[in-house]
Structure formats: structure tokens, C-alpha cells
């Protein structure tokens, strides 16, 4: 089979596509980040580290930190909610679990913009929550709910929660219930059993969920734009502005590069961790 070139022939068109439209463009960002910005928005082909240095300028770096903060908060909330939901699903009778899981994930399949928009409907000044408050007789001034940091966090949690439920459910459903019972039998309370047995055994699922929500949130551009309402910028919006309004491509590329580095670092760290978790199980009688 090794001398047979026909499989390679089948793969070639797709590989050319992926190479030309994914690998090269991504590499391009790396190069672009080291060029100088032209006077009127173009690119001047001289090497510089200025763009990269500018990323770490407090003015911009604090946007980075802020994005990381919001992404971290969203990921943490999503993990708490998602883990609780996955745990509850796994505690239900086995025959109901596939259906519960299906409905937990169903919203994930609908359009991201639509799901985000649903929160505008709920949170806006004439929205359902305000109406509800009036209806129960609340007359006072209501705080601005839409176009706030909280709204962005809610939106991110809402959009990515199903993913966390899935990633936490996987290890929870694989637990041997007798291991929990063994802990109870040896004198541990339900809470101690959760803390010392269930939780440690399901950390990989939580880590996967956290990393993905964090990565998808920190580079998010839609949710801050729609639910943050330009009140503040996240890194994705900053990048967007460099490419489409400020016309400072090299700086945009430098921002992207750092963003991609953070994302890749996390994703790879998570992959290594998942690998180690499953590798340990594979090696029997070693």
C-alpha cells in the first residue's frame, strides 16, 4: 500500500484548500505583525517590534486583561452551572438521561446570533424582565441591564453552557456508582464523597469545558458588540476595529497573534491534560 499514490491523489484537493486558505493565511498574520503601518493605512515593508510592544502598552493590555477577566468569569459560571446540570442528569434514571442530554444541547444547535438576540429581548428597556417588574408592581427606577458587562457574561454563559454540560456529563456518566458507595461505606458523608471522590475523577471534563468557554469567550466579538453595546471593548472588537475601521493591519495582526497564542496555549495544555487522563487508564497491569 505504501507505494500506492492513489490515496494521496484523493487527499490532494482538500489539502491544497486547507493549506492555501488556512495554513498560509494564519502564517501571514505572524508575518504581518512585524511590519510597520503605512501612513494611510497600508503596510510598509520594514521589520519592527513596535506592534507587539503596543499590545503590551497599558492602554491596550488592560483590554486584554479585561477580556480575560470576562472570559474567565463566564467560563467559571458556565462550569459551575454546567457541572451541576450534568451531575443532576447523571443522577436521573438511566433511561431518561439521553433525552435530558438531548434537550440540554438542543439550544446549542440554533443560531448563535439568535440566542444572543433572545437576551436583548429579555433585558432591554422595554423587555420582558422590565415588564415583569412593572407587572408585579415595582415602580422605581430599574438598573440598566442590557449593554453592560453583566449582560455580556450572561450571554456568553448562555451560549456556551450546553458545551460544558456535555463535557462534564461524559466523565460523570462513566463513573462506577459503586466507587461512590465505597466512599460512603468507608464513613464519608455525601458531601465529602463528592469532594474527594466524584469531583477529582471528573476534573478533566470541567477543564475541557472551562478552556473551551474561555477560548471562545476571550476572542468573542458578537456578544460584546450586541449585549455590551459599545460600552466597552473586548479584544475581539479591538482586532475588528484595527482591520475594518482603524486600518492598522499590522497592529491588528499583532493583537491577533497574542490572542491566538493565548488560545493555542490553553487548548494545547488542555489536550495534554486530557491525554494524560486517558493514558493513565489505558496502561493496565503496568
Amino acid at each position: 500500500m505504501s507505494a500506492d499514490r492513489r490515496p494521496l491523489l484523493l487527499m490532494t484537493p482538500a489539502m491544497i484548500w486547507l493549506f492555501g486558505l488556512m495554513v498560509v493565511p494564519c502564517a501571514l498574520i505572524l508575518v504581518l505583525a512585524f511590519f510597520r503601518r503605512g501612513l494611510y493605512g497600508g503596510i510598509e515593508y520594514t521589520w519592527t517590534l513596535e506592534n507587539l510592544a503596543l499590545v503590551f502598552d497599558p492602554l491596550y493590555f488592560q483590554i486584554f486583561l479585561k477580556s480575560a477577566g470576562i472570559a474567565g468569569l463566564s467560563a467559571a459560571i458556565a462550569c459551575v452551572l454546567g457541572y451541576a446540570a450534568a451531575y443532576a442528569i447523571a443522577a436521573m434514571p438511566r433511561r431518561h438521561q439521553p433525552m435530558l442530554l438531548f434537550f440540554a444541547v438542543l439550544p446549542f444547535w440554533s443560531n448563535y446570533l439568535v440566542r444572543t438576540y433572545a437576551w436583548i429581548v429579555l433585558l432591554n428597556r422595554e423587555g420582558l424582565i422590565v415588564n415583569l417588574a412593572r407587572w408585579v408592581g415595582y415602580e422605581g427606577e430599574l438598573p440598566q441591564m442590557l449593554y453592560s458587562e453583566q449582560a455580556v457574561v450572561i450571554g456568553l454563559v448562555y451560549n456556551y453552557l450546553p458545551f460544558v454540560i456535555l463535557s462534564c456529563y461524559a466523565p460523570l456518566s462513566r463513573l462506577n456508582p459503586e466507587v461512590n458507595e465505597a466512599s460512603r461505606d468507608l464513613g464519608a458523608s455525601a458531601w465529602t464523597t463528592f469532594r474527594r471522590v466524584t469531583l477529582p475523577m471528573t476534573v478533566p471534563g470541567i477543564a475541557t469545558g472551562f478552556v473551551f468557554v474561555f477560548v471562545l469567550s476571550i476572542g468573542n466579538f458578537v456578544t460584546p458588540a450586541l449585549l455590551g453595546g459599545g460600552q466597552f471593548q473586548m479584544i475581539g472588537n479591538l482586532v475588528y476595529a484595527q482591520f475594518l475601521t482603524a486600518n492598522d493591519w499590522p497592529f491588528g495582526a499583532a493583537l491577533s497573534m497574542v490572542l491566538i497564542a493565548v488560545m493555542l496555549g490553553l487548548l494545547m495544555g488542555q489536550a495534554v491534560m486530557a491525554d494524560r487522563a486517558s493514558g493513565g487508564k489505558g496502561a493496565r497491569d503496568g
Partner: peptide, 18 residues
Amino acid sequence: FAPMIIPDIVLAIALLSF
């Protein structure tokens, strides 16, 4: 495998500059 997990924003920016 990469196109499935690469964040949209990364691919979008890369393609735009390309």
C-alpha cells in the same frame, strides 16, 4: 482537525488579511 476547533475569529481575521 484544526478547522473544527480553530476559533472563528482567528480564521476570519487570517482570511481577511490574506
